[in-house]
Nucleic acid binder design. Structure first.
Length: 278
DNA sequence: CTTTTCTCCTGTATGC
DNA sequence: TGCATACAGGAGAAAA
C-alpha cells in the first residue's frame, strides 16, 4: 500500500536535495546522515519495492534507499509549503518541484539507509530477511520444514523475520487464534499440517489487513501501522483481554511472552503441558 | 553457530 | 489533580 503510493508518486523523479533532521534517522546508514543526504542528491528513483516490513526505492538501478517505518513511521507526499510535521525526519525535494516526499516517525524506530542492490534485486542490507507470504519466492513447505526442526515456541518462529517476514505481534496472535494453537507450543511438537495451517492463517490475516486497512495514498496520507478499519472490525484475540472469544465465549486471556503481550483464548488455545522456553 | 534477551523512543493510558 | 510508571512496537546488538 505504501509501496504502491510511492510507486505512483516518486518513480521516475530525480532527487534534487534531501533534508535530514538529526542523525538518528540515518543511524543504520553506516557513513552517517550527511553522507546519506549528499549521496541521494542527483539520483533518480527507478522502482519501489517491499519485503516484509522493509520498503526500498531503487536509485538508478544500482543502489536502494531502504525505508523502515518501524511502528509509527509514515511516508507523506506533500507540497513544500505544507507545515513541517513535528516528527518529520526527512524531506526530499525533486528536480521537478512539488510535491515533496517526507518521512515522519514519532518513535523513531524506523529509519533510512542506502544499500547496494544485489543481483536478485534485493538490497544487501535486506538480504537476511526471508520472503513474505505474498512473494513468488515464498516457499511455505520449506518454512514448515525449518520450523519443524526448531525447539522454540511457535510464536517466536512466526516473529522471526529470517524465517518468514511481515508477521508482527498482532498478526501472530490473530493467526494463532484462528489456528487454535497456543503460541508457546514448540514448533517441533506441532505436526506439519498444523504448521501449514498456522502459516495459511497468517497469510490470510495479512491479506485482510492489507485489503481493509490503510488510507489511500491519494489522500496524501498513509497510515502504515494504523489500518484502523481492520483493527476495529477484525481482531479476534489481540488487545481483547477479558472480552468473550468470538468462537467459544471464554474470556480472552493476556500473557507476557518475549517482552510482549500475547492474547489468546484459554479454551480454544490451551497452553502446552510442558513449559516451553520463554 | 544458534537462540534469547535487551534496548532504542515517545505519546497515551493507567495507577497511586 | 498531578506526578510516576507501564505499555506499545521491529530489529539488531549483545549475551547466553
Amino acid at each position: 500500500m505504501v509501496r504502491r503510493g510511492l510507486a505512483d508518486h516518486v518513480i521516475g523523479r530525480e532527487i534534487a536535495r534531501v533534508h535530514l533532521a538529526g542523525v538518528r534517522v540515518a543511524r543504520r546508514h553506516v557513513a552517517g546522515s550527511q553522507d546519506l543526504a549528499d549521496r541521494l542528491a542527483g539520483l533518480t528513483i527507478t522502482a519501489a519495492s517491499r519485503r516484509g516490513k522493509y520498503l526500498w526505492l531503487a536509485l538508478d538501478g544500482e543502489e536502494a534507499l531502504i525505508i523502515h517505518l518501524g511502528m509509527s513511521g509514515q511516508m507523506l507526499v506533500e507540497p513544500e509549503q505544507a507545515p513541517v510535521e513535528k516528527h518529520c525526519h526527512a524531506r526530499f525535494d525533486f528536480t521537478d518541484g512539488d510535491p515533496q516526499l517526507r518521512f515522519i516517525d514519532q518513535r523513531t524506530f524506523g529509519g533510512l539507509a542506502l544499500s547496494p542492490l544485489g543481483t536478485d534485486g534485493i538490497p544487501e542490507a535486506v538480504a537476511h530477511i526471508a520472503p513474505d507470504p505474498f512473494e513468488p519466492a515464498y516457499d511455505q513447505a520449506a518454512v514448515v520444514r525449518r520450523m519443524k526442526q526448531r525447539e522454540s515456541a511457535v510464536k517466536r518462529a512466526l516473529l522471526d523475520q529470517s524465517l518468514v517476514s511481515g508477521i508482527g505481534n498482532i498478526y501472530a496472535d490473530e493467526a494463532l487464534w484462528r489456528a487454535r494453537v497456543h503460541g508457546e507450543r514448540l514448533c517441533s511438537g506441532l505436526s506439519k499440517p498444523v504448521l501449514h495451517r498456522v502459516l495459511d492463517h497468517a497469510r490470510e490475516v495479512m491479506a485482510e489487513a492489507l485489503s481493509q486497512g490503510g488510507t489511500s495514498f491519494d489522500a496524501l496520507y498513509v497510515n502504515v501501522n494504523g489500518a484502523s478499519g481492520y483493527f476495529e472490525r477484525s481482531l479476534h484475540a489481540y488487545g481483547r483481554a477479558g472480552t468473550p472469544c468470538d468462537r467459544c465465549g471464554a474470556p480472552i486471556r493476556r500473557e507476557h511472552f518475549m517482552n510482549r503481550s500475547s492474547f489468546s483464548c484459554p479454551v480454544c488455545q490451551p497452553r502446552p503441558r510442558q513449559r516451553s522456553t520463554t
